[in-house]
Design a protein around this nucleic acid. Structure first.
Lengths: 260, 260
DNA sequence: CGTTATCTTGACGTACATCAAATGTCGTGG
DNA sequence: CCACGACATTTGATGTACGTCAAGATAACG
């Protein structure tokens, strides 16, 4: 196992996997320690500079990715520039599920071979701050799933979780007020900061206000105003734009669920 | 294999599968003709009366379903009654993906055994009009996936398609105007009516205005007004509340994508 | 053919967007 | 270390798309 030197923006190196801190969080956790060699064989570690776009909607989906460090934003654009962020991804985040895009998705049903079209990414993704990720070719993923059925199980589980998250976000965008959206966001972030155990009350937001706005279907101004109002109500404290303390988690939780 | 008699509302019978019209559209299409017996063995056909709730959010996810006739609405509720419909499902629609709900989904990442919790449905579903569906126990699905790997492949593919659809809907709810939402809805419905080939220009909407509103994050009034405006603009014709003709599909398509 | 739910239409209110400007934050170089 | 500039964030004034409330008009149904 050797080191490769590469230009700074995109460094690539074979992945050790064995001591990958994000393995338990992602689909790689499905593979047993003693089989990690087959994984490392096909994984390529890549470093991304802040802002780097590494996956683009409607491009051929030749690779899948796994975030190992940093945070990415996953989004879709309308032709006039309106942006909807569909999610943020931290260590363990899997990226690259794709559909044989027949332009207008027909909710699961096909029943004929209109799926001749090659798979394309359905969303774009770029780095927020410096990011490290692992890249696999789609073919390699296919082989891994064939060799290790637990891998496919894990991927299905991941997809189901992502779908549930997206559906929860549909409720947020379709039916919640700005206050409820921000409360939901803060509570979810604090839960994510500590996947197990008690949620963090002090949390770091790697994304900008603009990102938050585009995630919650609001404007920067509304995000800013709403957070300030939370502050005057002693629900949160704003140490810095990126560092928030949750002072009254119960109240925020209630707001998030639609009370108040 | 015996018949079970049940109250009229929910009739149940073993499923033949062989001549199931919706098989090519759903996950059952993954199973070869000569293996259909193993499928029919575990499938139970069920008839639902209009309005019948058959899957409820946060209940134990003991079964999965496959719509074979009619249309269902899939939704989530807020405690005060606000409703978000996350999708409509016709023949072929698979239902019952679930996550070990740790109350606040943490986007894919877990990395510990907080998943001890039993799987629960993440959404509710009820019949619009009369519906027929097939029910499988989750255990049976697990066995089917083990015996027929193509089944699991198909399910993963389905989940990916559903996720892409949900993400598209996030854009709609987060960033589109009422006009754009309705246009997107009409175009998508017409595309769905004919999964392959040219989209239908005359389409039947089995769901009520209220359902459409709760799907698009609007109110009934706004849906009604916007449709009427489309009518005065000669984009559509309204034969009856449930029967719409698309007169200018190109214009609607453009609107849906965010132009105009 | 009456009764009731659904859909339409109108008048008015408001939560959030838009536009505009001040303030804060942070990297860079003197 | 501090001054400067670029950009992110906050704050304020105003506008508007869509929601709410309230009748009517149609359609569905027994």
């Amino acid at each position: 196992m050797m080191f490769q030197r590469r230009p700074m923006v995109v460094g690539a190196a074979p992945a050790p996997c064995v001591d990958c801190a994000s393995r338990p969080f992602g689909i790689c956790g499905a593979i047993d320690e003693r089989d990690l060699a087959s994984l490392a064989e096909v994984a390529v570690a890549i470093d991304l500079a802040p802002g780097k776009l590494f996956m683009e909607e409607s491009e051929p989906a030749d690779h899948v990715f796994n975030v190992t460090a940093g945070t990415v934003r996953i989004f879709k654009l309308l032709p006039d520039g309106r942006r909807q962020i569909v999610g943020f991804g931290g260590p363990g985040q899997f990226l690259g599920l794709a559909t044989s895009t027949v332009l207008d998705r027909t909710r699961g049903a096909r029943g004929c071979d209109c799926r001749a079209a090659p798979a394309a990414y359905t969303v774009s993704a770029e780095a927020i701050g410096p990011v490290r990720l692992c890249r696999f070719s789609r073919a390699a993923l296919r082989r891994l799933m064939d060799d290790f059925p637990r891998m496919e199980d894990r991927l299905l589980e991941t997809a189901a979780t992502e779908l549930a998250a997206a559906q929860e976000q549909l409720v947020l965008l379709g039916r919640k007020t700005a206050r409820e959206r921000l409360a939901s966001f803060l509570v979810a972030q604090s839960a994510r900061a500590r996947p197990c155990g008690p949620p963090a009350s002090s949390l770091f937001l790697p994304m900008s206000r603009g990102d938050i706005a585009d995630y919650l279907g609001l404007t920067v101004e509304t995000v800013s105003r709403t957070l300030r109002r939370f502050r005057t109500e002693r629900l949160i404290a704003l140490r810095s734009p990126t560092h928030v303390d949750l002072l009254d988690r119960a109240a925020l939780q209630a707001l998030a669920q639609g009370f108040g």
